[in-house]
Design a protein around this nucleic acid. Structure first.
Length: 479
RNA sequence: GUCCCCGUCGUCUAGAGGCCCAGGACGCUGGCCUUUCAAGCCGGUAACACGGGUUCGAAUCCCGUCGGGGACACCA
């Protein structure tokens, strides 16, 4: 009987939720849901300088917005709590002591300055960066130098050897011992470093599979050494391809503003669309493009996670967003549109019947809620400014009599509906013996100020009788 | 530089030896529809990095070259 899969997302709270992190979270989440497992959120806040409570909140908010809810983690204390690394310090100490007692780790009294100097010397001598490896100065040190604090280093086994693991995405990957060194597990103040804290937590939280970005494949090896030293069976590993910016470098907060999940929310992207887009970057299910959360849960697997990094494409995100704008129930979209209208000083109460009509009218024209709000703006305002060019072209001496007819007939309409309004335009143009455009365009310009809008009946219906008549009159009154 | 990973249309990808002179999607583009703009529908554009093997047969397997990315901290 296989144990219940337990996976985790372990962000460090040093900023907003990153797109790459969001996808890592989503992959893990889907894997858990798919296999009836548990999705754990662990906060790796051991970087004292950079971790902030605001970042924790930002990450939680981002995940929540995307509909990625955790089974255990902050606010959802479970059997292996706590879920903040800074609250698990005794654990790290306990296991470090054990390793030291067994001679598999040791205290190192070299100061940071000494190490830095030696590294600089080596790199200067070889002329190559990244070639420094800790010499093992304190490996067999017996004395305890006065006035010096000690970090704890892992003791790499001597001699030939290699570490291998079978990645669920990449396949077997191997590293020679000789490429590793005695890395620092814990600082003098008892705060663990990533590779150490990560292993202790994954172990003590009963994680069965570690899914993370490919930037972590190299850190898997020292981590594996630790499992070996403790005699623990390591979890499975799955490394996901990176997401690249337009410059083909790893999407980073520094260089790529689009790395911010919530920026997209602010831009009017739907959570459904963003997660749909992001999951297709690095994973596929045949030719399917528009994928619901339910389908993701049903279909997700590591077999179809790709091995190659993907480039962020705003075009496709926009296309997907519109697909979702059209697929979601109008009421759902309307609810979100309210905020975007409010930001434009249009106060509409959620549930206002006009909202859903706006959504239906503009979801085929807008790619984002942002655009939709811009387009919808003038339908909620009183009166409209006429675009000069459009007015000059369409509000002419020839068109005005037609406009007047339309005005009279719609005023008398018993039912203010798009169909009835369209019928009026049709009738007027037929009677005048002109094409529909000859009537519809002047009406459109009068009603919206410009030449572009949804179907004319739809447009007038949206405006309402009172506002329509007001605008038609205003246009007619124009010299 | 060292180590690790990767290499199918501009981009995201399907493809697990013959179904592929390579399919879908975005983008771009021609047309249809049409009261405008969209949306929709139909069509076009464009790729297996290169060179060697293995095999009756390779985008798919192996090797090399080149190219790209990632990691090389008392960050995560």
């Amino acid at each position: 009987m296989a144990p219940v899969p337990r996976v985790r997302f372990a962000p460090s709270p040093t900023g907003y939720l990153h797109i790459g992190g969001a996808r890592t979270a989503l992959f893990n989440y889907l894997y858990a849901k798919r296999h009836g497992g548990v999705f754990i959120l662990r906060i790796e806040d051991t970087d004292q300088e950079r971790s902030t409570p605001e970042s924790v909140k930002a990450i939680l908010d981002g995940l929540t917005w995307l509909g990625i809810d955790w089974d255990e983690g902050p606010g959802k204390e479970g059997p292996v709590a706590p879920y903040f690394q800074t609250q698990r310090l005794e654990l790290y100490k306990k296991y470090a002591d054990q390793l030291i007692a067994e001679g598999k780790a040791y205290r190192c009294y070299c100061t940071r300055e000494e190490i830095d100097a030696r590294r600089a010397a080596v790199e200067k001598a070889t002329g190559k960066p990244g070639t420094y490896k800790y010499e093992g100065t304190c490996r067999d040190r017996k004395d305890i130098p006065e006035g010096r604090s000690a970090v704890i280093r892992f003791r790499m086994p001597e001699g030939e050897g290699q570490v291998t693991f079978n990645d669920k995405v990449l396949g077997p990957i191997t590293k020679q011992y000789s490429d590793l060194d005695d890395w620092v597990m814990m600082r003098a103040d008892g705060i663990p470093l990533y590779n150490y804290g990560c292993v202790i937590d994954d172990r003590t939280m009963d994680i069965t599979l570690v899914g993370r970005g490919q930037e972590h494949v190299n850190s898997t090896f020292p981590q594996l050494m630790l499992y070996q030293a403790f005699g623990w069976k390591p979890p499975e590993f799955a490394h996901f391809p990176l997401i690249l910016g337009p410059d083909r470098e790893k999407l980073s907060k520094r260089k790529h503003p689009e790395a911010d999940v919530m920026l997209h929310k602010r831009n009017g992207v739907l959570a459904e669309a963003l997660s749909n887009y992001v999951i297709r970057l690095g994973w596929s299910h045949g030719n399917d493009e528009v994928i619901s959360r339910e389908q993701m849960v049903e279909w997700f697997d590591f077999d179809h996670v790709g091995t190659t990094s993907g480039v962020w494409s705003p075009d496709k995100l926009m296309w997907l967003n519109q697909q979702w704008l059209k697929m979601l129930p109008p009421a759902v979209v309307a609810e979100q549109l309210v905020n975007f209208l409010a930001a434009r000083d249009v106060q509409v109460k959620a549930g206002d019947p006009r909202l859903e009509r706006v959504v239906m009218a503009f979801r085929e024209r807008a790619k984002t809620l942002q655009e939709m709000a811009d387009m919808a703006l003038k339908y909620f305002q009183h009166g409209v400014a006429l675009d000069e060019k459009a007015a000059t072209k369409h509000l002419t001496a020839e068109s005005k009599p037609l406009l007047t007819q339309v005005r009279e007939q719609v005023a008398a309409l018993p039912q203010w509906s798009a169909a009835a309004l369209d019928e009026v335009v049709k009738k007027v143009s037929e009677q005048a013996g002109v094409g529909m455009g000859k009537v519809a365009q002047p009406v459109r310009v009068a009603a919206t100020g410009g030449t572009v809008s949804p179907g004319i009946g739809e447009t007038l219906e949206l405006l309402g009788r009172e506002e329509t008549l007001h605008r038609l009159d205003a246009a007619l009154a124009r010299p």
